[in-house]
Nucleic acid binder design. Sequence first.
DNA 1: TTTTTATGTAACTCAAAAGTTACACTAACT
DNA 2: AGTTAGTGTAACTTTTGAGTTACATAAAAA
Lengths: 107, 107
Amino acid sequence: MATPQLDAFQVIADPSRRKIVSLLSEEVLTINSLTEHFEMSRPAVSKHIKILEQAGFVKIENQGRERYCHLHSVGFEAIKDWIGYYDDFWKEKINKLQKLIETNESE
Amino acid sequence: MATPQLDAFQVIADPSRRKIVSLLSEEVLTINSLTEHFEMSRPAVSKHIKILEQAGFVKIENQGRERYCHLHSVGFEAIKDWIGYYDDFWKEKINKLQKLIETNESE
DNA sequence: TTTTTATGTAACTCAAAAGTTACACTAACT
DNA sequence: AGTTAGTGTAACTTTTGAGTTACATAAAAA
């Protein structure tokens, strides 16, 4: 998965998918073992995994009939860049405010 | 807006809302002036703004019959925390790998 | 005071997406 | 070889949500 084929924001909007990602941050899991953590059916989990893979959040390693899922960093990058931009926005805003205060103090 | 009433991830998943947020990072805009940047109708923009407000991404300042929209930081925090967690995850992973390499080199 | 202008909201339509069940396939076990 | 286990996918249902139009309201302008 070099280039994600799906919008990272839309993919991660789903609470079930965020839970999957959270579980995979603690341990590598197969589709079946993931399903045990949910109310929903296995095909539903399977679909979520496929979506997460296409968005670059998950990588799959096939071992025989089992598919081991673990986190992949690519998907997180778009989100990180996005939040980074707005983080800068707020920092700059605080900075401007600070300068304004300093200017007024020196008058 | 102390506590966001909507899931920040679901709110920001919509490309139109991300575009609104992007526009508001450059200038304060009213609902009508925002609408000029889109193909969609004004009520659609109005709805998006309401959702963004409820999620803490936008603050609204009423001036007469106009509503000036500007960014609010609260909504960004959930996303920032989330990405921060996984950022740590990757850093730790690299760290472990580095230590593993060092251990093997000294053998 | 009549008419614009800026907006919110209700009611509706339509499409996307999340879930289900049923089925197929292949690997592993007996 | 037959059976069980792990998984993918197609077809379907149902819900959600983004968009629309039509209408209501209040502020500003004429």
